[in-house]
């Protein structure tokens, strides 16, 4: 029955991986839903966050927690600036231009990271314990990441449900014209959502650097899967994105278990393409 233990281990790892993916998809979904722009460079924001944690911890010797806080604020500021400097001037142009301009940012951030930090793989050199549970090995860092991601999502959910600004964020993704009648300045909400999306990328970075080395191209490994989860879950649908994250992470994890990791991703992407044909409004969206 060794086989089964490994299978369960793969499923559990899939769930744990899904937590971080859900967090990232949520951040992207927030921007996508509110501003109606897909940040192709979203995973590169995560990369920037990972480098700032690495640099703060390794170069300036700051405690990890401080580095994480700095990274969250730094990436939130970056998200704010991306909207303010790059997206805002072209909001009125075809949506594809807005998508492509963030592609330009992707190149810029990747290359700048290469320029500043070279292509080397870097890590914090942490050695977190591995939990042994009924003959299964579960990485402690993955568990921390999963729990933190869940907590962050609950906090965000409360913010969106309980505050006026949160209500405005939900409202604007449903009708961006009519909110103005209620006294909402959309430009301000766009900036808030962009900063919030950035902050979530910063938090995601903190959770990922526990498990992965950072290098300039790391965004490529998380970016595409994050967009797909975001679209699969349905635009502006937080619960949908959450479930989609776990569906995709299971496909990847189980595909990786039965075949190899790449095939896990292939299955997940093919699943995405097929789902787009069957339910273009997302897994849980209502067709309008």
């Amino acid at each position: 029955m060794i086989f089964d233990i490994f299978l369960v281990e793969a499923i559990i790892n899939g769930i744990l991986f899904g937590g971080v993916l859900a967090l990232l998809a949520l951040g992207l979904n927030l921007v996508f839903g509110v501003v109606d722009v897909v940040w192709i460079c979203y995973a590169e924001l995560v990369m920037v966050g990972m480098y700032s944690i690495y640099w703060g911890n390794n170069h300036f010797g700051l405690p990890l927690v401080i580095c994480v806080v700095i990274a969250i604020f730094a990436v939130a500021l970056l998200g704010f600036l991306i909207h303010f400097l790059v997206i805002r001037p072209i909001l009125g142009t075809p949506p594809i231009n807005q998508l492509l301009v963030t592609g330009g940012l992707l190149f810029f951030m990747q290359s700048l990271a290469t320029l500043l930090f070279t292509g080397d793989f870097r890590n914090l050199g942490l050695h977190l314990p591995v939990l042994e549970l009924a003959e299964m090995y579960i990485s402690f860092s993955r568990l921390i990441a999963f729990v933190t991601a869940l907590l962050a999502m609950v906090a965000l959910y409360m913010f969106l449900k309980r505050t006026y600004l949160g209500a405005a964020i939900r409202a604007i993704s449903q009708d961006r014209e009519v909110v103005v009648l209620m006294g909402v300045n959309p430009q301000r909400v766009y900036l808030v959502a962009s900063a919030l999306g950035g902050g979530l990328a910063g938090l995601g970075a903190a959770l990922l650097i526990l498990q992965y080395d950072v290098h300039p191209l790391i965004g490529i490994s998380f970016g595409p899967i994050t967009f797909m989860i975001c679209v699969l879950g349905g635009l502006g649908n937080m619960i949908g994105g959450f479930i989609a994250a776990f569906v995709m992470s299971q496909l990847i994890s189980l595909g990786g278990f039965f075949l190899e990791t790449e095939w896990g991703y292939v299955i997940a992407f093919v699943f995405f393409i097929i789902m787009m044909f069957i339910r273009p409004q997302g897994l849980f969206g209502n067709r309008s």
């Binding site: 330009g104 940012l105 810029f108 990747q110 290359s111």
Partner: peptide, 9 residues
């Protein structure tokens, strides 16, 4: 790439 990225934007 850095210059190119800025150019694209």
């Amino acid at each position: 790439g850095t210059i190119y990225g800025i150019m694209l934007i």
